[in-house]
Nucleic acid binder design. Structure first.
Length: 552
RNA sequence: UCGCCCGUAGUUCAAUUGGCAGAACACCGGACUUUGAAUCCGGCCGUUGGAGGUUCGAGUCCUCCCGGGCGAGCCA
């Protein structure tokens, strides 16, 4: 197994003694939204590296913009992290460092490396120039340090309105890298902050806060996504100007995660919630940590998935089927097997002794002998799946059809004898006979059947609401055709029915994932365990046969 | 237009100093089967973005070209 380029860099740095063998990372979310799959990749990368190299990893909230941030997100992010099984060595906030950041900014001004500008935002933008175009220096660029310092203090003390003044780094207005064209370091925002409340009216920008926060904490490897590549020169420039308590941290960028049929943009996710396309951020169709949790995607599967896809600088698009295969593999080992009928059809056994109940001993998980067995009631009045009976079977259809014998799993062989139809010709009940010699599912004479079907005893059945999901976005690349992912929304991504389920399903705990035999994995809702979400279906050869036939 | 980054199988990644281009998922087939599941076995898939160059030998080094991504917030 070879190392990804980030881990390789850590190994190389350790070999060269760059950080004295120390390894420290951090996961730095902004508390302005919920964690999603993209964050999960970053989380397991950062915490994983710390763990593997005997280092440390802090959770640090990048809370430098009070206009969009909120304490509720802080709590949600902590919860999601805990659910992912990750334990930060410490929890910090960029706002913990506001005093130090401000003091460092004063140093920068004194050193003639920053100045207070009264140019308005729009003009600054114009003067910045464009790609291949020259920049124009601000008229205040050479303001004496003492004057800037005085103004900077007045900014802090509330003497100016929002946006009236800003602190800018004095770097190079002709740089090819736009982030070096005198970037803004401090801005005035009269907005209460969720932690510092009204103590500050000036806030550092990301570029003045991030690298310094890393440096204060002793971070060695500051890992972020590719779009920050151009910021690295600024990250380094800022740290170069300061006296640091530790070795200077280094930024390394990796490609963010893209998955087919999924959208990771916070903005689009928010729109889905606000326009009611989903129930909320924690809807089982959302690629948020909370959504995936409700859906029944286990943290362990997310971990093996992110391990498998590794990390690189190549912009890539992962097929969602890969994620699902990790989820299936996990549940195949751990999920208890249960029987549930999603689209019920009556099956009546005409030669069954009236009122007789036979309790069948059934294995809970063939992949795990320790999971034990349970008792399931069998009677002459059953529910079977509508899909499992055809009056007029297509080729290669192995299930129940008039005159054919099949096995009812863990019970008896039955042979369909007749079907009752309604006025429209729909089958509403199937009549069958059973062979009492086949109890448990084997014929003493050794005869075989082509298929085995699940069932539920009507008198014993419990009802459960079951949600089956289609892809939220029909297109593998949402928005590719029109530019707006919302145009690719599946019009009916959730299909809800009332299922008939075996009695044992009344005992599942919230959040538990079970396999409905032959159908897929289903997660009992985290709030209401009488509701199930289809996590992912089983591989379905019959569905493939039909699909191929459709294609011709 | 300028700068930075990235191009290896359908997809995601490997390939030790420059030394036989491989794996997983997907797909196809077979075995097994009380889940058309799982499991096991096998198969298919490549102009390593292109063209030159260096070399006994290039995915790897050099040059040019092509394609894709990001960048002109007082967002992060």
């Amino acid at each position: 197994m070879s190392l990804d380029f980030v881990r390789q860099k850590v190994v190389d740095d350790n070999a060269a003694g760059t950080f004295g063998g120390r390894v420290q990372t951090r996961f730095p979310p902004e508390p302005n939204g919920f964690l999603h799959l993209g964050h999960v990749k970053s989380i397991f990368l950062n915490f994983g590296i710390a763990e593997e190299f005997g280092g440390t990893c802090f959770l640090r909230f990048d809370d430098t913009n009070p206009e969009t941030e909120d304490i509720s997100y802080v709590e949600a992010i902590k919860e999601d992290l805990a659910w992912l099984g990750v334990q930060p060595d410490d929890v910090r906030f960029a706002s913990d460092y506001f005093d130090q950041l401000y003091a460092w900014a004063e140093d920068l001004i004194r050193a003639g490396k920053a100045y207070v500008d009264d140019t308005d935002a729009e003009t600054i933008s114009e003067q910045r120039g464009g790609f291949g175009q020259p920049g124009v220096e601000s008229a205040r660029r050479d303001r004496p340090a003492e004057e800037s310092l005085g103004l900077f203090h007045q900014m802090r003390d509330g003497a100016f309105a929002d946006g009236e003044l800003s602190l800018r780094a004095k770097i190079d207005m002709q740089a090819d890298n736009m982030w070096l064209r005198d970037p803004v370091l401090y801005r005035i925002r009269r907005v209460p902050h969720h932690r510092t409340e009204d103590r500050w009216v000036v806030y550092p920008t990301y570029d003045w806060a991030h690298g310094q926060s890393d440096a204060i904490e002793g971070v060695t490897h500051s890992i972020c996504t590719l779009e920050f590549s151009d910021h690295r020169a600024l990250y380094d420039w800022c740290l170069d100007q300061l006296e640091l308590p530790f070795e200077q941290p280094e930024q390394t960028e990796f490609a963010r995660l893209n998955v087919t049929h999924l959208v990771m943009s916070k903005r689009i996710l928010k729109t889905l919630v606000e326009q009611g396309h989903v129930d909320g951020w924690d809807d089982a169709r959302m690629p948020t940590v909370r959504g995936m949790r409700r859906r029944g995607f286990p943290a362990a599967a997310l971990r093996s998935f992110t391990d498998h896809i590794s990390v690189a600088k190549t912009n890539s698009m992962i097929e969602i089927e890969l994620l699902e295969s990790f989820v299936r593999t996990h549940h195949n080992r751990h999920a208890l097997r249960r029987m549930a009928v999603l689209d019920p059809l009556k099956l009546t056994i005409t030669n069954w002794p009236d009122g007789h109940v036979e309790w069948m001993d059934v294995v809970n998980n063939p992949e795990d002998p320790d999971a034990g067995t349970r008792s399931v009631p069998f009677t002459g009045e059953l529910w079977i799946e509508q899909d499992d009976f055809r009056l007029d079977p297509p080729p290669k259809y192995f299930r129940l059809t008039p005159g054919r014998e099949v096995r009812l799993r863990n019970a008896f062989f039955v042979t369909a004898t007749d079907a009752v139809t309604d006025d429209d010709g729909n089958v509403i009940e199937v009549l069958a006979t059973y062979d009492p010699e086949t109890k448990g599912g084997n014929a003493p004479d050794g005869r075989k059947v082509k298929s085995t079907m699940h069932w539920v005893s009507r008198p014993h059945a419990a009802e459960a609401t079951v949600h089956r999901y289609e892809r939220l976005f029909e297109s593998s690349h949402p928005g590719e055709a029109t530019g707006d992912p919302l145009d690719d929304l599946h019009p009916a991504s959730r299909h809800t029915t009332t299922a008939r389920v075996e009695p044992a399903l009344a005992e599942v705990t919230a959040g538990e994932v079970v396999q409905f035999e032959r159908l897929g994995y289903f997660a009992a809702d985290v709030d209401d365990p009488t509701v199930f979400h289809r996590t992912v279906g089983l591989r379905d050869e019959w569905a493939n046969i039909q699909k191929r036939k459709q294609k011709g």
